[in-house]
Design a protein around this nucleic acid. Structure first.
Lengths: 218, 218
DNA sequence: CGATTGTTTGATCTCTCTCAATGGGCGTGG
DNA sequence: CCACGCCCATTGAGAGAGATCAAACAATCG
């Protein structure tokens, strides 16, 4: 996680690209330049199964560094723009030089890796044992905690069909769950891409996987 | 990923512990000593939801280094022994000193983080969009590729109930899927904890998510 | 060798997917 | 700036994969 000035500095040694939504950078083209900084927008790591099913394994926001170097194995994931996005392809060699010299930048870089690994593990927990409604509740918190500013309004960083592919659900289910959260007064949804948390306690409890039979006529 | 000699060297500055299966090292106790080397056996990262559902987000085998430092957030995951295991709690300070001096060890350490992040992403793909049978097929390959020696016999590094918590399934489903793979001649299962791949091509195709309606009386 | 833990099998239930059709919002081009 | 068209969100009805529950069986450990 670098600050904007640092990103801009690095970008001098690299190529900054604007991407339209749904633009895909395929895995094979990434092996040459596996390090990408997100300047603006949302970038997803996607994987297409042989029969077309799409999975979004992770997403990255403004300021994140995506390091796709995979020691020992082939890169199997694509990058995809989930919104209009601006990215910066970094030369791994140049980056490594910078990190070699700058100890604090190196620490930041390693922390960045640790943080992303931690996010991936948290996400795995959401995926393994949570029900659809719990997944969506958890996703709302992830968006809140990862958006740059602390605000009551949460701007969803991607569309419902992308959320579905990220949570292992279908777009219809995501829509139904968001409406259910709204019906039970936990959130409000002024527009499709904007959410306000109304009852953070109840939403947290739900996201953390507490049984709440009590609420369902039992 | 360090070699056994290196592990043993590091262990002089640390405490080596033998764990019985199901021993849990709770998240709060890990914040002081968040770096653990697996000497022998299988260690899982587990998370228990408020109502008792258990998720295993990742597992680590002999030689793996588990770095649970989570910059910025609290550690929320426990470690659990999925088999009888021997681990080595490393002092993060000592480890960082070693890495500060030894550039190649540092590279190994960063590669280790990248590799684990990559494994976590792959696992997310398995969890989001694959059906139970595909998940189990994929798991068989993961076990094959991660076990220390290349052998026809794959020793499952954990029990069915742990596999279930890792794949987001139930033990009954894992059992049924393994039998289905056996019925369709893709694997053989001499004992509960041992598997032989009989038709790697078909198993790979299945794991990668190709529709195979053709095989099902269509 | 007995008790506990884990695996297997079968029957039923339920949550989510699937399919299809409608409606709305956003971006594009005029 | 407005209108059109396309993509996305929504809604409903139905089907299916996996969960759940229960009970028998096997394996492991002390």
């Amino acid at each position: 996680m670098l600050r904007k000035e640092e990103l801009e500095h690095l970008s001098r040694f690299s190529s900054t690209i604007k991407l339209a939504r749904k633009t895909v950078l395929r895995a094979d083209s990434l092996s040459l330049s596996p390090v990408t900084a997100v300047i603006e927008g949302t970038i997803g790591i996607q994987h297409i199964l042989d029969d077309g099913r799409r999975s979004i394994a992770a997403f990255y926001l403004s300021g994140d560094i995506i390091d796709l170097r995979t020691p020992g194995t082939d890169q199997r994931h694509d990058l995809v723009a989930l919104t209009r996005a601006t990215i910066c392809r970094l030369s791994p060699a140049v980056l490594d030089d910078v990190l070699q010299l700058n100890e604090s930048a190196r620490a930041v870089s390693v922390d960045n890796l640790r943080r992303q690994k931690c996010l991936a593990l948290d996400h795995s927990v959401d995926l393994t044992k949570k029900r659809a409604l719990e997944k969506v509740a958890s996703f709302v918190f992830e968006c809140r905690d990862r958006q740059p500013t602390v605000a009551a309004e949460i701007k969803l960083p991607m569309q419902h069909c992308d959320i579905a592919d990220y949570l292992g659900l279908r777009p219809e289910t995501v829509s139904r769950c968001l409406h259910e959260l709204q019906d039970s007064k936990m959130i409000e949804q002024p527009t499709v891409s904007c959410i306000t948390i109304k009852d953070a306690g109840a939403l947290r409890t739900l996201a953390d996987g507490t049984k709440h039979d009590g609420e369902r006529a039992r």
